Simulated assay, not measured.
Amino acid sequence: MSQLSNRKAQLEAFDKLLTIMEELREQCPWDRKQTLESLRHLTIEETFELSDAILDNDLQEIKKELGDILLHIVFYAKIGAEKESFDIGNVITSLNEKLIRRHPHIYGDTEAKDEDAVKANWEKIKLKEKGNKSVLGGVPRSLPALIKAMRIQEKARGVGFDWEEKEQVWEKVEEEMQEFKTEFNAASTQEINKEKATAEFGDLLFSLINYARFIDINPEEALERTNLKFIKRFQYLEQAAKQDGKSITDMTLAEMDVYWNKAKEGE
């Protein structure tokens, strides 16, 4: 039996990790000093590093970053045990119970014929569990705005508040685009109402994110791919100009466009 499918080996590896965590907490000055609060920003950083590895489709790096996040989970649980609040066993048991509870189509007598039905059941059960007064109460306040928009829309869809056809969503995009154009006319020299223009631009972005969701595009991933593409092209521009003895700070936009187009051709 391979290492990947050997449950005994997996449990032994996890047991060793728990032992190492105990030893580090007792013997390492840095590990002894850590708190839930001090680990928080490090966990966020590790999560972004995992995201980078996934975008790069680097499986070995994904494995490494998953290990780093698992370490943080075990670390938090160790601190929780020291506070006599919870330990890793409580964390896992709670997770197991939640997964069973939120999959009644697997562990109960509820039917779910497709992904949308599963999501709808999940949101209804979650709403009941947490006692939120709003379906949107479970959306973290500190989420980046683009991701928050996605989660808001997904949760609203989970209880049936959504468009029926993607054509309707695109009509909304065009409507918001026209409203923004009216508020911020690029051809006009008249001073704009920045507050109203900002509001209309937000509506436009929200509608675009909604449309992306309808055609199964993750807008966060799409934007990040464009960010990376821009970085790659701009760095080519910098390097190629330098090789030709030029500085981009002294170049015209037309001169820079020559290198930019070469970067695009090389992709």
Rank of each mutant, 00 (worst) to 15 (best):
E97D: 15
E165F: 13
D162K: 13
T93A: 11
L127R: 06
E183A: 15
G108L: 09
G131R: 10
N193S: 01
N132Q: 15
G160F: 08
G89L: 09
V135N: 01
N132M: 11
A112K: 07
I192C: 01
K130Y: 13
R141E: 15
G158K: 03
Q190E: 15
D109H: 03
V173R: 04
L99H: 11
D114C: 11
K172S: 12
K83Q: 14
G131C: 06
F86E: 11
G131L: 11
L136W: 06
R101N: 14
A112R: 10
R151W: 08
L127V: 02
E171Q: 12
I125G: 06
E183G: 10
E167F: 02
E171S: 09
R102I: 09
S85C: 10
R157T: 12
K130G: 14
D87F: 01
I92R: 08
G160Y: 04
E167R: 09
K181Y: 03
T182F: 05
N90F: 10
Q153N: 10
T110D: 08
I192M: 07
I106K: 14
W122S: 08
I192N: 03
N96T: 12
F180T: 04
R157M: 07
T110M: 09
E167G: 05
T93V: 09
I100P: 06
G89E: 12
E176S: 05
E174S: 01
V173A: 05
Y107M: 12
K113M: 04
D109L: 08
A145H: 09
F86N: 10
I192G: 00
V173K: 05
Q178P: 01
I192W: 04
K155W: 00
D114Y: 05
V159F: 07
F86K: 05
K194V: 07
E154G: 02
E175P: 05
K194H: 07
H103M: 11
E84L: 04
I100H: 11
K166Y: 06
L136D: 00
E129A: 03
K155I: 00
Q178K: 13
Q168I: 02
W163H: 15
V139N: 01
K133A: 13
R157P: 02
A120C: 09
R141S: 14
W122T: 14
R141M: 08
I152S: 00
L143I: 02
